[in-house]
Design a protein around this nucleic acid. Structure first.
Lengths: 146, 146
DNA sequence: CTTGATGCAAATGGTTTGCATGTTT
DNA sequence: AAACATGCAAACCATTTGCATCAAG
């Protein structure tokens, strides 16, 4: 597994390549998102975590940073049921099955959509590129209880 | 095509069957959603349309009504990019492929997800019930131009 | 030095809630 | 009559914005 610093530097380089500036706030946000791994973070989550190291990083800066990183294609957005918007690395492609009864989520590999993507290509010439799909339904446990 | 009144009565009956009360506000909301067909409506859309007939239907009542109808399983929720929450009949299952370049959308029959649903059931015991999925990608024409 | 990023406070917009009143059952 | 839905106003929460200041290129 690659050290985080390298990853963050790499992402910062990508940001600069898009003509955006490399600031400490942006580095801090990326560092936290990389550290969080597959956990999805909200703007407030990030603010709380970053406050430990950089106490005067304002929430509005986090929002503006997330906007910039999303525009640059480095982050992707995921909105869940009621919860506030969450962010994750675009490279980290994955999908979710969310139980509408208990709220449990199952992480799915991108490959689950391969058959669907092929069908869309064959039938409509549509080149699907799904980043972060959420499929509703009922998980095994809740289905058993019903 | 069935007359709307019948459909609305049917939905109201379903609501009553769930132990909810049949009020004129709820009937008005259902009537507008049925009339809208496949167009997705927000709470404010509904308030505006209903105001013509029932000028003193308050927005908060619309929200509470939408909550009740969703709880009863009659309506389903769809959240898009930045736009406010939209509602549509649960019975009206459909999916979209949206071109991220030109914005064109292809309507997809629910059956495109059958293989995926079966896989989720086999692998995780998850009973998928996807109501309104949106798949990003590039349509045939934009893919050809790239 | 020029452009863009940040801190702060204040505004915004969608949605929710407390309470008194009206309606459904 | 009892239980619940509604109107209204006020609260709430996530997010955005204006502006003066500060940092990156």
């Amino acid at each position: 597994m690659r050290p985080q610093a390298d990853t963050v530097d790499e992402l910062m380089a990508r940001l600069r390549a898009k003509g955006q500036r490399a600031t400490s706030a942006r580095r801090a946000v990326l560092a936290e998102i990389v550290a969080a791994g597959s956990v999805h973070l909200t703007a407030e989550d990030l603010a709380r975590r970053i406050a430990a190291q950089h106490p005067d990083t304002h929430l509005s800066t986090i929002y503006r940073t997330l906007e910039a990183l999303t525009q640059a294609g480095i982050l992707s957005v995921a909105r869940f049921r009621d919860e506030p918007t969450t962010y994750h690395l675009t490279d980290d492609v994955h999908h979710h099955a969310v139980c509408s009864t208990c709220g449990a989520t199952i992480d799915l590999p991108p490959s689950v959509l391969d058959p669907l993507c092929r069908q869309l290509l064959d039938d409509h010439g549509f080149v699907a590129n799904p980043h972060h799909l959420t499929i509703g339904g009922t998980c095994a446990r809740c289905a058993a209880e019903a």
